[in-house]
Amino acid sequence: MKEHATHWLSILEACLLVALGVQMINAAGLLVGGTAGLGLIAQQMLPNLSFGQLFFVINLPFYAVAIRYMGTTFTLRTFGAVTLLSLLSDLIENTISLQLAHPLIASILGGLLIGFGLTILIRHNASIGGITIMAVFLERRMNINAAKTTLCTDVSILLLGLAFFDLMTVGYSLVAFVAVSSVLGRYRQPKVVLPAVVLNPNVVAAKG
């Protein structure tokens, strides 16, 4: 019971860090990668919906893939993390002003917060869903490297962002991408081979 509570407390702390980072970047009008980036782009088209609402909905289709290929524990923790991140993001957006003097500062600080939050989620067999789940699915079904899928997706999100953001904004957003990747590359557990997920050991054993 104590270990179970520790896992969820860590996931809550991780989601708070990611939510702060995302809203810091959002307040500066920048982008991040993954489904969070898709949520920020979707908010440009659907301004009446909050980031938290859009982020939660975007992740829904991926849970069917997660439970089949990642296992029940990972799926439940990921669903919990996505739900917490959605709620915390909206709470922060409505109650705290995160405007910074320069978008470059927002991109660096926001990216670092997201990176540390994702690192904690990695160590507790969870993620913030979406792109990570699809990357693992493609790796297992089609032998497409998950890191390459994630990279291609993030680049695609940046290119898509050009339709809604100016070139300078996209450039600052790229700094946030680099900050997230830098933290993940240095602090995630060495045994983890994917950029934002720990594989369920039972699933790995079954596949072997």
Rank of each mutant, 00 (worst) to 15 (best):
Met1Trp: 11
Thr6Trp: 09
Trp8Arg: 09
Ile11Gly: 02
Ile11Met: 08
Leu12Trp: 10
Ala19Asp: 07
Gly21Thr: 07
Gly21Asn: 14
Gln23Val: 07
Asn26Glu: 15
Ala28Ile: 04
Val32Trp: 13
Ala36Tyr: 06
Leu38Arg: 12
Ile41Val: 05
Ala42Tyr: 09
Ala42Phe: 09
Gln43Asp: 11
Leu46Pro: 11
Phe56His: 14
Leu60Met: 03
Phe62Ser: 12
Arg68Lys: 14
Phe79Thr: 00
Ala81Ile: 03
Val82His: 07
Leu85Tyr: 10
Leu85Glu: 11
Leu88Pro: 13
Leu88Met: 14
Asp90Trp: 13
His102Val: 00
His102Ser: 01
Ile105Thr: 12
Ser107Ala: 08
Leu112Cys: 11
Arg123Thr: 03
Ser127His: 07
Val136Glu: 08
Met142Val: 04
Asn145Gly: 00
Ala146Trp: 13
Ala147Thr: 12
Leu151Thr: 09
Thr153Phe: 02
Ile157Ala: 10
Leu160Phe: 14
Gly161His: 12
Val175His: 11
Ala176Arg: 14
Phe177Cys: 02
Val180Lys: 14
Ser181Pro: 00
Ser181Asn: 07
Ser182Glu: 11
Leu184Met: 13
Arg186Gln: 07
Arg186Trp: 00
Gln189Asp: 07
Gln189Phe: 12
Pro190Met: 13
Lys191Thr: 00
Val192Asn: 11
Leu194Trp: 00
Val203His: 05
Lys207Asn: 02
